[in-house]
């Protein structure tokens, strides 16, 4: 269940940050398309969060599995300020556990909030902070650790 791509989407739906584990040209473009297409599902889920349905906890930020494709699974997370985090993981036969994904997202959210507190960062611009990059690298490492556990 190794994460292969992390994306941060702003509230106007353009990417603030998109990084894949192996930055090759071809694959990167594919991730761009994939993440962009998954925003559709995010929007749908966010709009239905307003009306709590049975079984769905309305107090959650975590949106769950957005789009299961053959190679990758896409997970989403939406914050209060309409900033969305998208995580793309490799599709293996093992069952992905929600708790692990939630933990990864939590780390990402904390890293994002930290970066936001930086007075030199203007909200709405591309994220270039090195600390954030390091945090994302550690998320990649952590997700690899999940695979090796199984």
């Amino acid at each position: 269940m190794a994460a292969v791509c992390v994306a941060v989407i702003s509230k106007q739906n353009f990417p603030l940050y998109l990084r894949s584990v192996n930055p090759q040209n071809e694959a990167d473009l594919q991730f761009q398309y994939l993440v962009h297409a998954s925003i559709d599902v995010v929007e749908e889920k966010v709009s239905t969060l307003g009306t709590p349905k049975a079984g769905q906890d309305p107090r959650e930020h975590y949106l769950g599995l957005l789009y299961p494709s053959e190679q990758y699974k896409v997970y989403g997370y939406a914050t209060n300020t309409r900033v969305k985090f998208i995580l793309v993981v490799e599709n293996t036969t093992s069952q992905s556990r929600d708790t692990e994904m939630k933990m990864l997202f939590k780390n990402l959210h904390v890293a994002y909030a930290d970066m936001l507190c930086n007075p030199f960062y203007t909200p709405g611009q591309k994220i270039t902070s090195r600390t954030f990059n390091n945090a994302v690298s550690s998320i990649f490492q952590m997700s690899k650790g999940f695979t090796s556990k199984e």
């Binding site: 309305p58 107090r59 914050t79 209060n80 909030a113 936001l116 909200p123």
Partner: peptide
């Protein structure tokens, strides 16, 4: 104003309520 704007996200993270 700078500080206030950033407090939104920080509070969102710390308070764990999904609704504003």
């Amino acid at each position: 104003k700078h500080a206030g704007f950033r407090m939104i996200d920080v509070l969102c993270l710390r308070e764990k309520t999904p609704k504003r």
